[in-house]
């Protein structure tokens, strides 16, 4: 036992004869450069980048490409948070544990501001990261569920285009839906 701990390379050597695993190890070390809309370059591990369906299909079309991949709809700030999420997700790919995954997902969204969530959603959509999109959509739904109309307008950056008479009428029509709403 202790001898293998002293010599961590030993295990690698044992598995090496299998060429398949050897290539996999080599690939996972490969980095991909991704350029955001605000011209920042992110060096991302290939395994993480392959979580982005949009990037994945880029490489399926041009497998040998070594160029920097432009992400014209992705600003750096939400992108770094998206990468953070995907790094976590990959751990669960090798070792699926639904309870732990849920816990990790809810911790991820818990510490994000409303603005963070709103900015990440178009990015997750553009990069086609379905799991993240689901997590974000659910997080937004949870945050607005018991909130007032005014809160939701500012959350989504929506201007009220009803006249005050129209709005009063709608509120009257569904008065019960305005009971027990959380304070803003």
């Amino acid at each position: 036992m202790s001898s293998s701990a002293e010599n961590p390379t030993l295990t690698t050597e044992i598995t090496k004869p299998s060429t398949e695993i050897a290539t996999e190890t080599a690939q996972s070390a490969k980095k991909i450069n991704l350029k955001t809309s605000d011209d920042q370059i992110f060096e991302v591990e290939e395994s993480v980048a392959m979580e982005f369906a949009t990037v994945k299909s880029f490489f399926e079309d041009a497998p040998s490409s070594t160029d920097t991949v432009p992400l014209p709809n992705v600003p750096a700030k939400p992108f770094s948070q998206v990468i953070e999420f995907c790094k976590e997700q990959i751990k669960f790919k090798a070792n699926p544990d639904e309870t732990e995954k849920k816990k990790s997902n809810s911790e991820f969204v818990k510490e994000k501001t409303n603005e963070d969530l709103v900015e990440m959603i178009p990015v997750a959509n553009y990069l086609e990261i379905k799991d993240l999109l689901d997590v974000l959509n659910q997080a937004v739904a949870d945050r607005i569920q018991n909130r007032s109309v005014e809160y939701v307008r500012s959350f989504f950056g929506i201007d009220n285009d009803f006249t005050s008479e129209e709005e009063a009428l709608l509120r009257e029509e569904h008065a019960w839906a305005f009971e027990d709403v959380d304070e803003d």
Partner: peptide, 13 residues
């Protein structure tokens, strides 16, 4: 969202 929230959010825009 549950229907109650949706009935309220009809007022959003």
């Amino acid at each position: 969202l549950p229907a109650k929230s949706l009935m309220r959010f009809r007022c959003v825009c």
